[in-house]
């Protein structure tokens, strides 16, 4: 499973990178940090969905709360057939539905999201609705770690913990970086486990680039005995796979151009081969 997912992840990352290079924009590094997480969710058997029926009532909901990682989600959705894959060429272009931040108009995208601290609360509301209606689908949501500076995140964390929304699964893409600097340098977020535990969540901490770790964390997610909502803190590297972009705040929200674009594609290929 892990080897298959790895090959799929490389294919998706390459398409995402090419898409952003073509458009000359897009949050490449934010997308690279969550590539394995999205690949595991959509190809590792965790999520229940049907690309032919985006509004299928019993689908699991996936809410991308860190809306800037839209190029990665668009790529996953296009690859799955929610829309023709070629349409990705219209990313951030005239005539396409694809904003640089996530747009609900894209088939398979549940929400419009770019402003942080929104998607998580929506996901909690959706999970509460499922509970009220005694429905069995799950609500997954992917947060950025920088997003955890928003007060609304902790309002919702408190709420979901209290209401024991165990049909809600949050994953935090913990890449330790924001726009200007590293989180622990300018306003420490750690200890994250203790914070989430204190808010009433079951916490798992994993290597967010390891398929074994991610698969293990999501194993049995549909039949959990715990009444607590689950948060998976996924330690990642922003820009993983492209050496000169990784761990380099200057690359936030940018796509490489010219020679750097070619170098980025080569490095991505090399890192996939070397791992």
């Amino acid at each position: 499973m892990a080897a298959t997912l790895k090959a799929k992840a490389y294919e998706l990352k390459k398409t995402m990178l090419e898409t952003c290079i073509r458009a000359g924009t897009g949050h490449v590094t934010s997308s690279l940090s969550c590539a394995e997480i999205l690949t595991t969710l959509f190809h590792g058997g965790a999520l229940r969905f049907d690309p032919k029926r985006p509004a299928w009532e019993d689908r699991d909901r996936f809410i991308l709360s860190k809306g800037q990682a839209s190029p990665m989600l668009y790529t996953v959705l296009g690859d799955l057939g929610y829309f023709p894959k070629e349409d990705l060429q219209k990313f951030a272009q005239a005539g396409g539905p694809f904003g640089v931040h996530l747009q609900k108009s894209v088939p398979g995208a549940e929400i419009t999201c770019g402003s942080l601290g929104h998607g998580f609360g929506l996901a909690a509301g959706m999970a509460l609705a499922a509970r009220m209606d005694r429905r069995n689908h799950l609500v997954f949501t992917l947060l950025g770690d920088g997003e955890c500076y928003e007060g609304s995140i902790w309002e919702t964390a408190l709420f979901a913990g209290h209401h024991r929304l165990n049909n809600l699964v949050a994953i935090v893409d913990r890449n330790y970086q924001c726009v200007l600097d590293f989180t622990e340098n300018f306003l420490a977020l750690e200890p994250m486990e203790k914070k989430w535990e204190a808010f009433g969540w079951r916490v798992k901490r994993v290597d967010g680039h390891s398929f074994d770790d991610l698969l293990d964390a999501l194993k049995g997610v549909r039949s959990r005995r715990s009444v607590q909502p689950l948060v998976i803190l996924a330690d990642t590297v922003k820009g993983a796979g492209v050496g000169f972009m990784a761990c380099n705040p200057i690359w936030h929200g940018a796509a490489p151009r010219g020679d750097e674009a070619q170098q980025a594609l080569r490095e991505l290929e090399r890192s996939a081969r070397d791992e």
Binding site: G121, G125, L128, T156, F159
Partner: peptide, 14 residues
């Protein structure tokens, strides 16, 4: 904030 978001999430589900 949570109230508005939870309400909006509920509305998304009908």
């Amino acid at each position: 904030q949570n109230g508005l978001l939870v309400a909006a999430g509920l509305a998304l589900e009908g």
